[in-house]
């Protein structure tokens, strides 16, 4: 670095402006066009399944959904996911951002508990996990906690006629542990679980 602080005219203001404009255009091309296109090309080449959204297809090749995105299940004979204020509509995302003190949230949660009691008379609400009656952050949470799956087994067993033990094994099979045995929480992918459940029901 040369010492030029005594000479403030080393670069003129108008040439700074010219460089600034040229740099603006150059970096839009480099960071805004070349970088994402190169990324896309490499991603599609090396990891095509992941790069296209980890879609799950049926035997005929039709897309059922993404293993990363939750779905809405209205049939009580399926495992239910978490509360979603957007009803798992994945063209957008969001939750209604209720504050902890918001009376509307309290009402929604009380309604969920009432609905749960009606649909699951065999399970006391003291066993109902909080995760099942709260809205996920994205509204698209594909997972429930292992406990949230377990408490649904008596209901599903009654409705489908499948033995509780079979369902229990199914849930265990679809329970993912912590990543690297360390990070995050254990979880059950609802869509993958229900796909296998639907095959057992046939």
């Amino acid at each position: 670095m040369t010492n030029s602080n005594s000479n403030s005219g080393s670069i003129s203001n108008s040439s700074i402006l010219a460089i600034a404009i040229r740099a603006g255009i150059a970096f839009i091309v480099l960071c805004g066009i070349i970088y994402p296109l190169v990324s896309t090309g490499l991603a599609q080449l090396i990891f095509p399944h992941q790069a296209n959204g980890s879609m799950i297809k049926d035997a005929s090749g039709r897309i059922i959904g993404s293993s990363l995105i939750g779905q809405s299940f209205t049939d009580p004979a399926y495992f239910q996911g978490r509360v979603s204020s957007i009803d798992y509509k994945a063209e957008a995302s969001g939750s209604n951002n209720y504050a902890p003190s918001n009376p509307d949230m309290l009402k929604r949660t009380q309604d969920s508990i009432t609905a749960w009691q009606a649909a699951n008379p065999d399970v006391p609400i003291s066993k109902l996990p909080i995760a099942l009656i709260t809205n996920s952050g994205s509204g698209l949470d594909p997972h429930i906690t292992p406990a949230s799956a377990e408490v649904q087994i008596p209901r599903i067993s009654k409705l489908t006629g499948l033995p509780a033990d079979t369902l229990k094994q199914l849930v265990e099979k679809h329970t993912d542990g912590r990543d690297l045995g360390l990070f995050g929480d254990p979880r059950v992918n609802v869509l993958e679980l229900n796909i296998e459940l639907s095959q057992l029901r046939k």
Binding site: S95, M105, I130, T134, G137, G184, R187
Partner: peptide, 11 residues
């Protein structure tokens, strides 16, 4: 589990 409103199960 704690306050799960607005949180994701995997995290």
């Amino acid at each position: 589990q704690g306050s799960m409103e607005g949180k994701e199960v995997r995290f």
